[in-house]
Design a protein around this nucleic acid. Structure first.
Length: 623
RNA sequence: GCCCCCGUAGCUCAGUUGGAUAGAGCAGCUGACUUCUAAUCAGCAGGUCGCACGUUCGAGUCGUGCCGGGGGUGCCA
């Protein structure tokens, strides 16, 4: 009974398609009806643009074809009569829904799943999120990888797919060995204790270790390049030798780490604990569903790298070049890539591409991914093109028994900029700690909440501020196109006006407050099965907006653009605000009208709630 | 050098596979609160869609070439 589409675009699409088939059989069954919401509300609710491209293809006059389509069109149950007068411009066909048809469609949307039924055969989607590194503070880049990744994962969960989040923690390799060694030295010198180790300690020591082991090498190169003289060279050479010694020790530490030698491994475990503790705390504060269970760090692939490289060598996928091992991609069918994918260094060490190949193998072949999505900085673009092509060449991207490779996608995001248009950093060029950023957002939100609503008790105000601050910061990240750089601007995201998280939270609060008020005043609330009456323009606009919800969620999944849902919810919130302003609900002219409007409010509330849940924004009852 | 991304109102951003008069918000201006939360709504003003050709009945959207900004580029991750 509910198998008919409720989405007017789909429904009218079927009818127009049938009309096209009757009007121009030679067009073929694949002819698209090209239905979209009308650009000009005064001309109709929906329009079909099908006649123009089709007429071109068939060598007909578009208006003539449109006239024939209109003649064959059977939409009497849905639309106001469609005549030649509804053909406009070069051949647009304007369609206007009958009010009772519109309320019928809303009835069909108003089900527990809100028009998004679970698929018969769920797909398995792996989403790579977070991208944290051991011993380093999280910053705005991690914010994007975490927030966008989690929202994409939530979207697929909402659509009923099987979702596996993977936190590919950078927890292995030489840089980690360097900091491990550094901490070992500090411990032995009594300057540090494992018990009281903090992420700030780690962050500081990580950079110190980097500097010790590599810092001077670059300086020497520069000195040589600009010929700074023998004294500078000698000085730097001495330091360089020292760095080489440090590096050598770090390599030994790496070997010790790889063989799980207890004294070193214990330190590594503690580093892991401290870093991941902070990371998971941030994930929780950010209202994501990322947990410890999603951890699948580089260290978890350590044992697999030898197998992978042996396998690739044995099958001739990888070849040796000047002592290094690489996979050539310049003849690959799926996009030639000039730069080969390097999987083993001359010194025998593995690279991050090696780990990523092992990760694709596990994700597709063991976890069974039909689609793997990487929410990672756009600057990694070439790397992922290489790794994706290499894994397809090696058939690691193909599920056992499958015909072709699973879909591998880099959901690339741009850089977060400061007000000056340069990457978002402190004046001295340091990364700003994510936890400080979140604290500041919540603090600022609390100030505003206190100003707007001074009557709130302190604890409720704190709860609201937390939700508003986090919603603001997340929404700012989700509401523009992923690939574009975006400017981080506290005042704008927390302004509570315009296209912001707080505005959406407020819209939801307003839908809820109607029901609270109704209860307070003893107004009857029996609206569940009330017939929806569409009379006022703002009611109609709201109804049309509500019907777009399922396709908005779908488009996030297709395009991997949470912005689609943000725009939709913003537009829905706007439609609701206009409706709320123009149409009295509790004081409506009749009981029927009040019940109809209450039902519209309830449906709006459910769609808003559901949409905010998909985005992963926390909500509140009052603001 | 080669490759990728971005360029739309003063600012921040939308603009579905090419469709009607390029849309929001902020800032500016004008109205609306003894009223279901004004954190709102209704309206005004604001544009050489980086530039130039091309394809098309039709280009912000597709193609080519420039200009400007950013990023990447086989032994870091």
């Amino acid at each position: 009974m509910n198998d008919q589409p409720f989405d007017p675009v789909e429904l009218l699409g079927q009818r127009v398609q049938a009309a096209i088939a009757a009007a121009a059989p030679e067009a073929g069954p694949e002819a698209d009806a090209l239905i979209s919401p009308s650009k000009r509300a005064e001309l109709g609710d929906f329009q079909s643009n099908a006649a123009m491209p089709l007429a071109k293809r068939l060598g007909m006059k578009p208006r003539d074809l449109a006239a024939t389509i209109v003649k064959k069109l059977d939409v009497a149950d849905l639309c106001e009569p469609v005549t030649e007068a509804d053909i406009a411009g070069p051949g647009f066909i304007n369609l206007r829904l009958k009010p009772e048809a519109l309320s019928g469609l809303l009835d069909r949307l108003d089900t527990p799943d809100l028009g998004l039924p679970a698929p018969a055969e769920p797909k398995t989607i792996v989403v790579d999120v977070c991208g944290v590194n051991l011993a380093k503070q999280m910053h705005v880049g991690h914010l994007r990888a975490t927030v966008i990744g989690d929202t994409l994962a939530r979207t697929f969960e909402r659509l009923g797919e099987t979702v596996i989040r993977q936190n590919h923690v950078g927890d292995w390799g030489l840089p980690i060995a360097m900091v491990t060694r550094k901490i070992q030295i500090e411990l032995n010198a009594g300057r540090l204790s494992l018990e009281s180790l903090t992420l700030d300690d780690l962050d500081r020591l990580y950079r110190a270790a980097q500097f010790e082991c590599t810092g001077q090498g670059k300086a020497l190169e520069i000195a040589a390049k600009y010929d700074l003289g023998p004294k500078v060279d000698a000085e730097l050479c001495a330091q360089h030798e020292e760095a080489m010694e440090h590096l050598e020790e770090a390599k030994q530490t790496l070997v010790a780490l790889q063989s799980h030698q207890p004294d070193v491994y214990t330190i590594w475990q503690r580093i892991y604990e401290v870093t991941m503790g902070a990371c998971l705390e941030a994930c929780e504060i950010l209202h994501t569903r990322i947990t410890e269970a999603d951890n699948a760090g580089e260290s978890s692939y350590a044992e697999e790298l030898v197998q992978v490289v042996d396998d690739l060598t044995a099958r001739g996928i990888a070849e040796e070049h000047e002592g290094a091992l690489l996979i050539r991609l310049d003849s690959a069918e799926d996009g030639k890539i000039a730069q080969p994918c390097l999987i083993r260094k001359r010194d025998g060490g593995y690279l991050y591409a090696t780990t990523d190949l092992a990760a694709i193998r596990r994700r597709v072949q063991t976890l069974g991914a039909d689609r793997v999505i990487y929410t990672v900085d756009a600057r990694q673009g070439l790397h992922f093109r290489q790794v994706f092509a290499a894994s397809r060449k090696a058939e690691y991207a193909t599920k056992p028994g499958a015909n072709g490779p699973s879909v591998l996608e880099h959901a690339a995001f741009g850089t977060v900029l400061g007000n000056d248009g340069k990457p978002f950093k402190t004046r001295s060029g340091e990364n700003i700690r994510l936890c400080d950023l979140l604290d500041e957002a919540v603090e600022r939100a609390e100030t505003t909440v206190a100003a707007k609503n001074p009557d709130l008790a302190a604890d409720e105000r704190a709860t609201i501020a937390k939700a508003v601050g986090i919603a603001a910061i997340k929404y700012a990240d989700l509401s523009s196109e992923r690939i574009k750089d975006h400017v981080f601007h506290f005042d704008r995201m927390l302004a509570f006006e315009g296209n912001t998280g707080p505005y959406l939270l407020y819209a939801l609060v307003r839908t809820r407050s109607v029901f609270r008020k109704a209860e307070e005043t003893g107004t009857p609330l029996d609206h569940a099965d009330a017939p929806i009456l569409i009379s006022e323009p703002t009611e109609k606009a709201l109804a049309l907006e509500l019907l777009r919800y399922p396709s908005a969620v779908q488009s996030v999944a297709t395009l991997l653009e949470p912005m689609r849902l943000c725009s939709y919810l913003y537009s829905l919130a706007g439609a609701y605000s206009s409706f709320y302003d123009a149409c009295p609900v509790l004081r409506a002219a009749s009981d029927d009208l009040r019940r109809s409007r209450l039902r519209l409010c309830a449906l709006t509330a459910r769609v808003l709630e559901d949409g905010l849940e998909v985005l992963g924004l926390p909500t509140v009852e009052r603001m």
